[in-house]
Simulated assay, not measured.
Amino acid sequence: MQNTTLFAALSLVTAIVALPAQAEVYTWTDADGNRVYSDQQSPDGKGQSVEVPKVNTIEPPPEMPSLERDESQSADGGSGSQQANYRRLAITNPSDDQPVRANDGSVVLTVETDPPLSSRHLLRVEMDGEPTDVSTPGIGQSTYQLVVPNVDRGSHAVAVAVVNARGETLQRSEPVILHVQRTSLNQPGRGGANQAPTAPAAPRAPNVPAPSAAGSGAGSGG
């Protein structure tokens, strides 16, 4: 009997939850003495109406924007690709229009992103509008340093791009203009990049005659 009562109570809860908020619930005892609950009136029309308590509801949390989303236009003007949503993507050092001394041609760039660079993305350096082989993966940081080797002297437009695993450019920073300065091999007195200066001849001691071949021979004869 206890199991029957428990089953009936569970059935009532299930029926109430499954019904629409404003549905009418009826109850009656069938020919076999079983308590019946339904949103339909009993066949004889004598079912009693049951007051259904208001169901408590919880509003779902707002959906967080995804770091990547489909866009009709990508960052590089293509259509149908994904675009990164970094609020900040910039080369912070060297600054724009700054002279950079790099005798060996290596230029160090400091790049900042906000939010931190996703592990699904790479930062890739672009030099004068062309991608380079210099890149670094996202490791959850906001600041990265990238070393660009063998940069020729002169002015260059440098930018960084966010790239996904398929090699697609998702977002690009504003370029900065760098004026790279390198030591010239054509400077006076420089015969080569690694040539050492010639040492001066050692001075001769005073009042000491230079040895002669004849004197050496005479000494040998005695």
Rank of each mutant, 00 (worst) to 15 (best):
M1Q: 15
M1L: 14
N3S: 06
T5N: 14
F7E: 15
L10Q: 12
S11N: 11
L12A: 11
L12F: 12
A15N: 06
I16G: 02
A18E: 09
L19W: 12
A21I: 09
E24C: 06
V25N: 05
T29D: 01
D30Q: 05
D30F: 06
D30E: 03
D32F: 09
G33S: 06
V36N: 00
V36E: 02
V36G: 03
Y37C: 01
D39M: 04
G45F: 05
G45Y: 08
G47N: 10
S49F: 00
V50T: 13
E51M: 12
V55W: 12
V55C: 11
V55A: 15
T57G: 03
I58C: 04
E63I: 04
E63A: 00
E63P: 00
R69H: 13
S72R: 10
Q73K: 14
S74D: 15
A75P: 03
S79G: 00
S79V: 08
G80Y: 10
A84L: 09
A84N: 06
N85R: 13
N85W: 05
Y86C: 07
R88I: 09
L89F: 05
T92M: 01
T92A: 07
N93H: 13
D96A: 00
D97L: 07
D97F: 10
P99W: 03
V100Q: 06
N103K: 06
G105H: 08
S106L: 09
V107A: 03
V108H: 08
T110H: 13
V111M: 02
E112D: 08
T113L: 04
D114W: 07
P115M: 08
P115Q: 08
P116G: 08
L117A: 01
S119F: 13
S119T: 13
H121F: 00
H121Y: 04
L122E: 08
L122D: 12
D128K: 02
E130H: 14
P137H: 05
G140V: 02
Q141W: 01
Q141L: 12
Y144D: 10
Y144V: 09
P149Y: 05
V151N: 00
S155M: 05
H156W: 05
A157D: 14
A159D: 03
V160F: 05
A161V: 04
V162H: 01
V163C: 01
V163K: 02
N164A: 01
R172E: 12
S173L: 07
P175C: 12
I177H: 15
I177F: 14
V180G: 01
V180A: 02
P188S: 03
G192S: 02
N194L: 13
Q195S: 02
Q195I: 00
A196Y: 14
P197Q: 05
R204G: 07
P206H: 09
P206K: 10
V208G: 04
A213E: 14
G215P: 07
G217W: 15
G219R: 12
G219D: 13
S220I: 15
G221R: 15
G221A: 15
G221F: 15
